[in-house]
Amino acid sequence: MSSTTLTPAVPQVPSELTLAALAEANRPAQMPLVTRIAEALSPSPAVTHLLVRGSLASGTADRLSDVDFAVGIDDAALPAFVTSLNDLMAMTTGALLPGWPDSIVTDLGGLGFVYLIPHDGKLQQVDLYLAPASAIPALRREVTCAAVLERIPATPTGGAQRRAAAFVAERTARPRTCTELLIEHLVLAVLLHKRIQRGQRFIAYAEWHLLHTATKDLIKAALAPGSRYWGWYQLREEIALTPIGRACLADLDEAVTSPAVPVADDVGRALDRVLALVERACPNALDGLSDALTAYRTYQELA
């Protein structure tokens, strides 16, 4: 019996992609990655807009800047597109991990995802904000964007708009899984290394607190998923009932008593702590991520 190796089809890049003006305005080191993302997303007929935003759109990018896209999706196609996004990004861009559902992005009527993609010998942060096509005009009034693809979307029906809005609301409100919270730690560690390299102490302080909060959320998701208490309340009463719970709270205590503004070694120790915590409290969160975590650590060591 012969075996057949299936390889992804090469995307047919639409002729309407307009990347030249962006490249001429910026000449950023990230431009090949911008092109790669645009060529991965644009073949889908569901994609109506590809808008580069952030520092690349304003011409203020440096070598550490992330790649930030707002992506317009036909209202009726939004649920199916979001559901398939991780597979699409892994297959066409080599995204190392599933996208982190960004919980700190500004609400502009859509859903944010952060991917870590190998590029030029390091992990590059790629932010994708997927919004229904009907929400794009309002988004563009709020955010400076440089358009690299614009298609005239079909006029959405009222039902399609309502279903898209309901889908966004449901995805935003649902509890995050242990795997998503682990990926949040990995993404925040990349952000923290960037802040440390830039000397952005106040932003590093804020994102360090976000990382500790993600650790608390991970412990609660693993050991008290039905918690009736908000935030940091009643942690000891709910968690410290078992040896595993007490060990996890000891990890959290070590995290919150670490220096307020981290250095690179602090971030590395925090990741070691969290990975040990996951193996102890919710090992199934690591399913399928072994190779990705090995690659992630290698890129972090080379950064």
Rank of each mutant, 00 (worst) to 15 (best):
T213Y: 03
V148A: 02
Q300T: 08
G59F: 08
P101E: 04
T177N: 05
S44M: 10
E184V: 00
D253S: 15
H212D: 03
G54R: 09
D62T: 13
L22S: 03
Q124C: 11
E238R: 06
K216C: 08
T93I: 06
C282V: 08
A61F: 08
G268Q: 09
R174I: 08
R163T: 14
L139Y: 10
A23L: 11
V274K: 00
V34F: 06
E39M: 09
L188I: 06
L97R: 00
A165Q: 14
L22E: 02
V168T: 05
V143F: 05
T294F: 05
L19P: 00
G110D: 02
I73H: 01
S103W: 04
G110I: 05
A165Y: 04
L271R: 04
T18L: 06
D74A: 12
T92W: 07
R198P: 03
L6T: 09
R162Q: 14
M91T: 12
L275W: 02
L88S: 05
P14W: 04
K194M: 12
A138G: 09
W100S: 02
L210N: 11
G226A: 03
G112Q: 04
L97T: 05
L211Q: 13
R27L: 13
S103R: 15
M31W: 10
P259G: 07
T106Q: 12
P28C: 13
R246A: 11
A285D: 00
T83P: 02
S103A: 12
A264Y: 03
Q125N: 14
M91P: 01
L41Y: 03
I136L: 12
